[in-house]
Design a protein around this nucleic acid. Sequence first.
DNA 1: TCTGGGGTCCTAGGACCC
DNA 2: TCTGGGGTCCTAGGACCC
Length: 436
Amino acid sequence: MPHPRRLPQQYALVDGNNFFVSCERVFDPGLEGRPVVVLSNNDGCAVARSDEAKALGIRMGAPYFQIRELLARHGGVALSSNYVLYGDMSRRMMSVVAHYSPEQEVYSIDECFLRFAGFGHWDLTAHARRLRAQVRQWTGIPVGVGIGPSKTLAKLANHLAKKHPDFREGGVCNLQDLAPWHQIRYLSEVDVGEVWGVGPRWAARLGELGIHSAQDLRQADPETLRRRFSVVLERTIRELNGLSCIPLEEAPPARQQIIASRSFGHPVIAKAELLEAVSTYAARAAVRLRRDGLAAGAIQVYLATNPFIPGEPQYHPATLLGFAAPTADTARLIQAARAGLGRIFKPGYRYKKAGVMLVDLLPAGVRQGELFEVGGEPRQERRGRLLEALDSLNARMGRGTLRFAAEGVAQSWGMRRERLTAGYTTDWDGLAVARG
DNA sequence: TCTGGGGTCCTAGGACCC
DNA sequence: TCTGGGGTCCTAGGACCC
């Protein structure tokens, strides 16, 4: 097998270390050196952990009620997630990183890929070290950088940069710097489940076939594994061998669906409360729909009981309602969501979660089937202006300032968020104060 | 008492059509 | 005894990602 050494293109994966925790630490240095976790919605489970929290054995996704004691014993802190803050810090981090390559794909809130084509004469390792120092200096966020000839290898190098003692110090791992036998050694130390695209299920099945490490997978036969798994795994094997199959996506692909759902702060029994909840979710989804310039052809409404309670009667219904013409109108979406709930609601269950999903999304300009709509164009336009005003007011004054009556006022079913930090970067009242 | 939310893609199988 | 075959579309389920 030909070994890729210095290929015409290289990819870097840059990601924030323990991103949510790092964001919180930027604004509260008192969190430095202590075990810190950031909790999911509803203060349900740990979604980000500081190194100190990881050292205590706190797993990703660990339920808060199971780790609260442990954390307290070690002087630890748990925080509710503050997505407005993380989103703002993310934009700052991404804009600094963007200076280091003309091609950037923002892959998630805390990571991005860079592509280096025509950088053959560059020392990418030194380039990555400068990037890392500058992001740290300008945003306060520590990042790791992995470099390789495919996105999968860049991810893997990033894993080594953060986890392997040989690289952790510098926070940069460039596979180009390693001789082939050296690469084999490192890839043999990485569990196959750490490879991008291999989850727990596949890792277990691969283990049964004697494939335990990233190196084992790299040497496996792509054709055989395509038949036993899917083309996705075949592609991963080729990527591990330095053949780039997953292109950089600079522009986000067209959105396929919009989901708005939440677990409730406590079990909900009353239909009236569920009606408020699905109305609120429909309104929230509608805002995102309009922000992206889309209209929905159908809406799905679903309910769920709590699967974690042993012996609890379970019920997970869903129903899909189509629109005569695609719509982005909050009132229509709420109306459909309520109708959908009416179809699936059964009394006697303790509901834990509800949600709506908007599907069959089209650009809002594309109007089909308008023939059968009542009201015609002038009415539609007035409606559009009203919704624009609603969106811009809520964007300025805060979500929920102006809302539809169906969404309810008290929202007693709402989520818990008891450990929230301030909007340090997005809210005047949350500005950090320097004392001296 | 207490266990997140929001996405994508692939595959298998059934319906339907000619 | 014996009961076509191939293409397309849709959906549900299962896997993955952060």
